[in-house]
C-alpha cells in the first residue's frame, strides 16, 4: 500500500524513446489544467492506451522516456491521469526535471523495467531507493536531498510557496530583488 514515501499500483508499459508529442500533443498546450490535459495524454496511441493509462498508477518505459520538448505538461498530464510514478530505463533530462518539479516520482531502473509485466503491480519507495516488482526488489540511487524536498512538497512552485509562507525566503528574495546587477561578479555575492 501507499505510504509517505511509497507509491505505486498497476502499471502500463511503453517502449524506448517515447516523445513529448506522443505524451501530450502540442495542440493541447493551451491548457495547464492536469485533468483537461489528462484527456489527451497519449492520444496518438489511440483510445485503448488512453483508457489503460487512466486505470493505471505507474508508467513503465524503456530508454529516453519524455524526449523532445521542454513542455512541462508532459508530466502534468500524467498526474492528471492518476499516475503517481514513472519507472524508466532512462529519461530525457528535461522530462526528469519537469517530473520532479511537478511532484511526479520519476525513477531510473533498467533492471526493474526488464522485470515488469504489462498490467502488473509496481511500487516505488523513493526514500529507501527501491522499486518493487512482484517479489523482486531493485535498488536505485535515492534522490539527493534538494530534489526530494521539492518532490515531497508537491513540486517546485508548491515548495517555493511553502517556503515563502514560512518566511524563510522572504528576506533573501527581497535582498535579491534590490536590482542585482547582471554581472557575474555580483551573482557570486548573491549566492552566499
Amino acid at each position: 500500500m501507499a505510504t509517505e514515501h511509497r507509491v505505486g499500483g498497476t502499471c502500463i508499459t511503453f517502449g524506448d524513446d517515447v516523445n513529448t508529442d506522443v505524451i501530450i500533443p502540442g495542440r493541447y498546450l493551451v491548457s495547464i489544467d492536469p485533468a483537461e490535459l489528462a484527456e489527451h495524454a497519449f492520444e496518438p496511441l489511440g483510445p485503448e492506451v488512453q483508457r489503460r493509462l487512466r486505470a493505471s498508477s505507474v508508467v513503465v518505459a524503456g530508454r529516453n522516456f519524455g524526449c523532445g520538448s521542454a513542455r512541462e505538461q508532459a508530466s502534468t498530464c500524467l498526474i492528471g491521469a492518476g499516475i503517481t510514478a514513472v519507472v524508466a530505463a532512462s529519461f530525457s533530462r528535461v522530462f526528469f526535471r519537469n517530473a520532479i518539479n511537478t511532484g511526479l516520482v520519476a525513477v531510473e531502473s533498467p533492471e526493474a523495467v526488464t522485470a515488469v509485466q504489462d498490467g502488473g503491480e509496481v511500487w516505488v519507495d523513493y526514500a529507501a531507493g527501491v522499486v518493487e516488482v512482484g517479489d523482486e526488489r531493485f535498488r536505485f540511487a535515492p534522490y539527493p536531498e534538494a530534489l526530494r524536498t521539492i518532490l515531497e512538497a508537491g513540486g517546485l512552485i508548491a515548495y517555493l510557496t511553502e517556503q515563502a509562507s514560512k518566511g524563510a525566503s522572504s528576506k533573501a528574495s527581497s535582498e535579491a530583488s534590490s536590482k542585482a546587477s547582471s554581472k557575474a561578479s555580483s551573482t557570486e555575492e548573491t549566492v552566499r
Binding site: 513542455r71 508530466s75 528535461v94 526535471r97 519537469n98 512552485i157 528574495s173 549566492v191
Partner: peptide, 18 residues
C-alpha cells in the same frame, strides 16, 4: 539549457535553479 515553465517562474523569484 531547456527547463519547464515552473522553473522559469521559480528563477524569476529566486534567481536560481538546481
Amino acid at each position: 539549457t531547456g527547463v519547464g515553465f515552473s522553473e522559469i517562474t521559480a528563477a524569476w523569484v529566486t534567481g536560481k535553479l538546481w
